[in-house]
Amino acid sequence: MHGEYVLSRYLIASDIVSPAHHPDPSRLLFASRTGKSLLVKERIYRSLLAGEFDRIDQATLLQLRADEVLVPPTSDEFLDLLEKNQRGIRETHTLSLTLQPTANCQLGCGYCGQQHVKKNLDEDTSARIVARIMDTLRRKSYIRLAINWYGGEPILALKQIEDISGQLIEQCGPAGVHFFASMVTNGLSFKPDVYLRLQRQRVNSFQITLDGIGHIHDLMRPVKAGGGSFDIILQNLVDVTGMPEFSANRSGVTSHNPHQYQPPQPGQGCRSDRPAGRSGAGGAQCGAGFSPGGGLGRQPGRPRQPGGGGLRRAGNRLDGACDPAGF
């Protein structure tokens, strides 16, 4: 192993995360080359820093290499990564873009850095966006277009989303480009009729934030007009995930919430006492995974990694080809 691999310079380590006086403490590592998070024993980390890779079990070494914590030696790791990224941009066939159809939002989250104004995309700007996207698709050999609707709160510009999506769907078909979309929404206006309208525009994946439960969430994400948002959002999720368009369930469970989990039953949607989701033929997903404090270090419902307990997965990676420079 010596000489075959070295410790990547793009590795970020946390302080020790185990309780004081723990006999075998751990710390978090973030391999920024791959976006992977790992929980490793302190003894493993010390061996990595010292270059004593022979003191690490083989299974853990294989995982560290796969996550690019350990990389082949190179004269300049930065230039190697730059070339890898540029090659990925040249070879990708998916154009991924984030569009903000509105600057407005109903919530007054204390940590939000945006200044909300009641302004949506006008027709001229929407037409220019569509024209530029189609021009970019024609200039390169893209076969997929992925749009992520962002805000503000994008549902407040539902008409603009339908207009732009309709034009893109109409033009992508003859061009041989597969169009699909996702949305980051606060969930306040995520009603069944809105979901159906978005599904018709191929918005099949939704990211909704709950900052804790009940009053904790309401303190963090209050409605500007007054009152909390948790009950409204949760009811919306119950209503939407109970629709017949959803057919499968996805749940996240850790050592902290097994008592909250109940096996999903046919026809049931999300419930406040069951962190669950459902994904249907349209590909839409509504899921929740709770991993507080001590659950850190393992994906919900995922067994520990082999290797003498020295390493565990601490996070998920969302893979997707993206070409921001191409736009």
Results as ranks from 00 to 15, higher is better:
P258M: 09
G267Y: 00
G110P: 15
Q167N: 13
W149V: 09
R46A: 05
I216K: 13
L62D: 14
A50K: 06
A103Q: 10
I89L: 06
G280I: 01
V17M: 14
P275M: 07
E68D: 10
T98D: 07
K84T: 04
K36P: 14
R46N: 10
T74L: 04
P244L: 04
K224P: 00
L81M: 06
V69E: 06
A20N: 01
P275E: 03
S255P: 13
C112F: 11
P244C: 02
R312P: 10
F30R: 11
L121T: 06
L311V: 15
G51I: 05
D193T: 14
E91N: 04
A284L: 01
K84R: 14
S37T: 12
S26P: 10
V203T: 05
K36F: 13
E153H: 08
T102A: 13
P101W: 00
R46M: 13
Y261D: 00
Y45M: 05
L121F: 05
R304C: 13
S141G: 06
P23C: 03
D273H: 01
D24H: 07
A66P: 03
L219M: 15
G294Y: 10
K140I: 03
M220F: 12
L95M: 03
P19F: 02
I16C: 04
L107K: 00
N257A: 14
G88P: 11
L82W: 06
P258Q: 07
P303Y: 02
R87C: 12
Y111G: 11
R317N: 03
Q285T: 14
D163R: 11
G35Y: 11
D122F: 04
R9E: 04
E52Q: 12
G307H: 01
P266H: 11
P73Q: 11
S247V: 02
L234R: 02
S279I: 11
Y150W: 07
A284R: 08
I147G: 07
